[in-house]
Design a protein around this nucleic acid. Structure first.
Length: 284
DNA sequence: CCCCAGTCCTGCGGGC
DNA sequence: TGCCCGCAGGACTGGG
């Protein structure tokens, strides 16, 4: 499930494609339902071919490829998408191939087992409208002090649910939300409006810590083995998870608590009741 | 505006 | 052995 650290790792691994020219784009034959490529396949083709890759970027959980004419190709991997210059896990789920010419011959492959992801070309104005600040909040790696608090403190939602809102802060997904709240010693069910100032400070500090550490380990490759970097190599941050997918295991931090699994907004949340005690509600 | 439930998609694992 | 069903959770939509 690519979140910010996984998408950032993908993007960094794609660095060799900068400066290359796109000579062809093709969709391999696939018996599966085709993924969304837009605005239409023909438009995508027409706008991409013969363009040179100028720069790589990331918007939240999306990889952005800036072309030399200002156009932007956006890869949105959702649950199981991979942007690769290495070999894909199989050919069955290979959805798009971008052939390149440059110093060396390269190709970018978009592979997606479940096919929830998409690849889209935007003209500059389309991109600006689609990803303006009302749609995508500040990047979770570049949060200003107080940035999280100012955007969420009036909300009545549980903090775990709010952290997944990409309009509030971009890049955090289900896995890292649980890990962050564990490190910040906050019960995931606490309403945002009940968090105190020092708790916001603690949370904002661990957001950067967890993401930076996860990037250092090249992201998390879970049991299903889906996530891989651009060269098709596994990440290793899963070996450093403290609560995610560890239901029933003793907490690695306090060794006394047992990791619990609950469901919030139809998504699994993991936490240690001892490290993240439920606080008395109400005004002080 | 705020927030929740439903939707998409495929592969896997549990139950019978 | 084979089938069915639930689950995984990105982003989006519709509705209360």
């Amino acid at each position: 499930m690519p979140e910010l650290p996984e998408v950032e790792t993908m993007k960094r691994g794609l660095a060799p494609i900068v400066g290359c020219r796109i000579v062809a784009v093709r969709r391999p034959r696939c018996r599966l339902k085709p993924i969304a490529i837009g605005p239409t396949w023909r438009t995508f083709q027409r706008r991409s071919v013969n363009r040179r890759i100028a720069e790589l970027d990331r918007v939240g959980k999306r990889v952005v490829v800036r072309l030399d004419d200002g156009g932007l190709v956006v890869f949105e991997p959702r649950m199981t998408g991979l942007v690769l210059i290495g070999p894909p896990p199989n050919l069955e789920h290979l959805r798009l191939v971008i052939e390149l010419a440059g110093r060396t011959t390269l190709r970018v492959a978009y592979w997606d087992r479940r096919g929830l992801g998409s690849v889209w070309h935007y003209a500059p104005i389309e991109f600006a409208l689609r990803f303006d600040e009302s749609a995508v909040g500040p990047d979770a790696l570049a949060l200003a002090p107080g940035g999280l608090r100012s955007r969420l403190e009036s909300s009545r939602r549980a903090i775990k649910v709010a952290l997944l809102d990409q309009r509030a802060v971009a890049g955090i997904g289900n896995l890292y939300a649980s890990e962050m709240l564990h490190r910040a010693h906050l019960d995931p069910r606490t309403r945002c409006c009940n968090l105190r100032g020092f708790e916001w400070d603690r949370l904002e500090a661990v957001v950067g810590e967890v993401l930076t550490e996860a990037i250092r380990y090249e992201g998390s490759t879970l049991g299903d083995g889906t996530y891989r970097n651009a060269l098709s190599e596994n990440g290793s941050y899963q070996n450093h998870h403290r609560v995610y997918a560890r239901e029933g295991e003793p907490c690695t931090t306090c060794t006394q608590g047992v990791v619990q699994r609950i469901v919030q907004a139809q998504r699994a949340t993991f936490f240690c009741p001892r490290c993240q005690p439920r606080r008395r509600q109400g005004p002080l």
